[in-house]
Each structure stands twice: as structure tokens, then as C-alpha cells.
Design a binder for these strands. Structure first.
Lengths: 101, 101
DNA sequence: CGGACATTTGGCTATATTGCCAATTGTAGA
DNA sequence: TCTACAATTGGCAATATAGCCAAATGTCCG
């Protein structure tokens, strides 16, 4: 059925976005970016990984449409494209809390 | 610093939950479960995969604390543990929409 | 008990993700 | 132009994930 293919595609699309967030460093960066734009060097310091690793994480977020970037001088600044992603944390916390019981 | 280790652990925990949702079939099941509990056979039909595959997806969701199960007779019913996970979809949709522009 | 049914588990291969290093690109300033 | 700095890209090895089949488990019913 065409209907089902469309439905599956829909969840496929959604999964891409969720997958892009499914990494501790990327969540950390999203959290940080919720407080304002940051350059890659800031985020590198935050997660404490190799610059190239951070850059690749950012490209994952960018490809998913979660962040956007802008070059200003030598640095490239990233910011959240859709601020609501931050609301996830509240719910995730309640999942973690509920699990503890 | 102890502080940073704790912080990293926090995001590690969160990532586990997000990761558990980061699959089209699992998102589809979460969506379906948001409308009430379902047995594995219902979900199997929904995603159209092998029973064992569906079962493994459910065990991922269960381990993350997203769903819980209950046996009633021959069947095992699954339900969402924390309904708020459904709110994710709205935000994810806006990410997808924003990306399209 | 024995069989049918619903589900899970083990085992396996194919595929995807991660993170580092090294090399490359882009920008600013001397 | 040459150099330094910021960031990205390519490549690779280690690890994780996905999905199928086959076998095992648990439950009901005759």
C-alpha cells in the first residue's frame, strides 16, 4: 500500500533527527547551544574531544537540521535552529527517574 | 574534576534514552503505544518485521525505561511508561520542516 | 503430559557509528 | 606572499547496531 510506505518514510525522517541527537557529546552541545551560539573551539573545550571529532558531531547535527553555522572571521559559530529540542531534556529526565523506581 | 565527570555521566544517561528512540520502527511503536497498550503481535503487524526483531526493539525500549510490559495470558502487552515522549514528535516535525527551507 | 501459540534469546553476518591522526581548506594579519 | 589559526575532510580500526533464522521459554488447553 502506498499509504504504508508514506507512513514508514515519515518515521524514517523522524528517526534521522532523533539519531542525530543520540550521542552524549551531541546532547551536551545542544544543551550548551541552548544558551546561545558558540564557536567550535568552545564546544571542543566543553566535550574535551579532538577538534575533528567535534567537527564531525556538528556536521551530524547540521545535516539533521538541528543546528546552523555562520562564519565570522576565523571562527565558525553554531546555533540551534529549532530551540524546542531543549524541551526533550525534561522528558528524558522523567524517563530516567521513572526507570530508577 | 569530579564535576565534569558527573556532568558527562548525566549526558551519557540521557543519550541512552534518546538512542533507544533513534530507530524508525521504535518511533513507530512509541507512536502506536501512545494510543494505548498493544501486544507484541499488534506491533509486529505494524512494523512488518520478524517477530524476533520486534521483540528486540521492544527490549531496547524497555531497558531504556520507555516502555513496560505485562503478561496477560499468552500475550505480553507493552505500554509507555512516560507519556511525554510523544511530545517529541511535534518538535521533530518542526526540525524537519525548518530543514526543508 | 503434549501440542499449539506468543514471545524471547542466541548466534550470526552485514552495516553503521565513533574517534583519532594526518592532510586539506579557508581566513586574517605581518 | 608566508605563517598561524580555526575548522573540515579523508581514512582507518574498533565497536555497536540491525535483522534474520533457529532454538528455547512460558502459557493455555485438551
Amino acid at each position: 500500500m502506498v499509504q504504508e510506505i508514506v507512513l514508514a518514510d515519515r518515521f524514517e525522517e523522524r528517526a534521522k533527527v532523533v539519531k542525530a541527537m543520540a550521542h552524549p557529546s551531541r546532547l551536551m552541545m545542544i544543551d550548551e547551544l541552548s544558551r546561545g551560539e558558540r564557536c567550535v573551539c568552545d564546544l571542543r573545550e566543553l566535550v574535551g574531544a579532538d577538534m575533528s571529532t567535534v567537527s564531525k558531531h556538528l556536521s551530524v547535527l547540521k545535516k539533521a537540521g538541528i543546528v546552523e553555522d555562520e562564519r565570522r572571521g576565523k571562527q565558525i559559530y553554531y546555533r540551534l535552529r529549532v530551540p524546542c529540542v531543549i524541551n526533550f531534556f525534561h522528558c528524558i529526565e522523567s524517563v530516567i527517574e521513572a526507570k530508577g523506581k
